[in-house]
Structure formats: C-alpha cells, structure tokens
C-alpha cells in the first residue's frame, strides 16, 4: 500500500516535472562575447541570449550555472547541469562522449593575434587555453605551445611578450584587437577547426537534444539566429 502511494506520488512528480522541466545550462562565464559575467553579476553574452530564446521556444525553464572550463564535461556527465553552452567547438573527440546539437555558430575561424603581423606562427611560442581545440592544433603544428588556464591569460602572455602570438577563436579576439589601438595584429593564416559551435548534452538526453535542435532549426530558418550573431560578433562575423 505504502509502495503504491509512493509510486503514484512519484508519477505525479514526474508528470509535473515534464510540464515545467528545469534545464540547467552550464557555461564558463569567462569567454566574451560568447558568455561572460556582466557587471550585474549575471551570465550574459551571445549564448545567454540564444539559450534563453531556445528555452522559451521549447517551453523549458532554464537556470544558468557557471563552472570551470577544466571540469565542464565531467560535471555534465555527473549531472550537475544538463547542457554545456559555452562556445564549445563540435569535434569528433568530444562527440564520442557528448551528444551535440547542430551548430548554432557556423564553423568559425581560429586566428593568431600577435604584436607584429610578421610573426611566424608555425615556429615560435604560441599561447592557447588548456584543453581547447586550439591548444591541440598548436601542439600539432610544430610551434611551441604555452598553455594557460583562462583565455584572459593567453592574451596577457602575448601582450607582455611571454608568447609570440595567441591562438583562439577569432570571434573572441576581434574585440580585443579592435580596442588595442593598433598594438595587436593578425598573424599567419586563419584556421578552420571543428564543425562549428554547438550545445553539448548527455548522450542519454535524446529528447532534450531534439528540442534544442528544433529551436535552432527554427531560428536558422527565420533569420533570427543570424541577427543574434551579428549583434554580438559584429557585421563581419560569418553567418548561416
């Protein structure tokens, strides 16, 4: 009897949660303009706006959580949040353990930024954030990789001469270059890595992946995704 009541209660609970499912969105909060903590202390940026829109379309309640880049995948697997929406490039390596949505940013370029445009980026010391596709690329390119825990530090290392250049998503570097008053320059050639940026989810959450996929498809179709990309990444950004 007791068991029965418990089960019905559980059923009611699951039914209730199906109606207003809370999805916890995990992000890094340190990668403007993708995602950052604004001056009010809230998660802000392109992905915040996109995520909120997608949740609204799928009738989900969304809660934003920030976490260290280092542990972002293990914490998702462990169930501390339900999605990773943190400028994560879709790569074959990651796709083995994560279920990615379709990309919401087209395959974008990664670029080298240096103090001097003539810097040889195939040799020399290149700074990149630990655990990113860019770090793996530099390690394989023949240049000497200098790794930092946060994207901030990579730029700082290039500025103070510790590294000859910094290698990161071009969209991240553009505002920094624009505001450097001519001190920084692009070096080498841009590189296409990965299949664009997508949301990462647990493989077992197929339903949720579908919901977000549907949302992204709709936003691609009506052009609102492009508007959003242009708003945050500037006129020159690659759109769909």
């Amino acid at each position: 009897m007791k068991n029965l009541i418990l089960t019905t209660a559980l059923l009611a609970l699951t039914a209730g949660s199906a109606m207003a499912q809370t999805v916890r969105m995990g992000t890094e909060g340190a990668y403007p303009p993708y995602n950052f903590i604004n001056d009010k202390g809230e998660v802000d940026g392109f992905e915040r706006e996109l995520g909120d829109k997608l949740c609204e379309m799928a009738a989900l309640t969304c809660e934003w959580v920030t976490t260290d880049w280092d542990g972002i995948i293990p914490n998702l697997q462990s169930g501390n949040y339900d999605t990773i929406i943190a400028g994560m490039n879709i790569t074959a390596e990651r796709a083995e353990v994560l279920a990615f949505t379709q990309n919401y940013i087209p395959p974008a370029s990664s670029a080298y930024m240096a103090l001097d445009a003539g810097t040889d980026v195939m040799k020399g010391v290149i700074a990149a954030q630990t655990g990113t596709v860019q770090a793996a690329h530099v390690a394989a390119s023949g240049a000497t990789l200098l790794e930092f825990a946060t994207p901030d530090e990579t730029v700082a290392a290039m500025r103070n001469g510790e590294a000859d250049a910094v290698f990161a998503d071009k969209d991240y570097l553009v505002p920094i270059l624009d505001e450097s008053a001519g001190k920084f320059a692009w070096a080498g050639t841009e590189v296409q890595i990965g299949d664009g940026v997508g949301m990462g989810l647990r493989k077992s959450d197929t339903e949720l992946v579908e919901k977000f996929n549907a949302g992204i498809t709709a936003m691609k179709a009506d052009g609102s995704l492009n508007t959003l990309i242009t708003k945050w990444f500037g006129e020159k950004a690659v759109t769909f």
Binding site: S17, E63, G79
Partner: peptide, 23 residues
C-alpha cells in the same frame, strides 16, 4: 553508462528544478 552517471530524477540532490540557492 560509459562515463555518464544517471540516477532517477527524484534522486538528484538537490532536485533539478530547485532554486539556484539550493544548488
């Protein structure tokens, strides 16, 4: 399941839909 750790929704501590404060 592989690397995934998945308990039933009721066993999540704290519950997924709990306010951020609880988390």
């Amino acid at each position: 399941n592989g690397l995934e750790f998945r308990v039933c929704p009721q066993a999540k501590v704290p519950n997924n839909s709990a306010a951020q404060v609880w988390h």
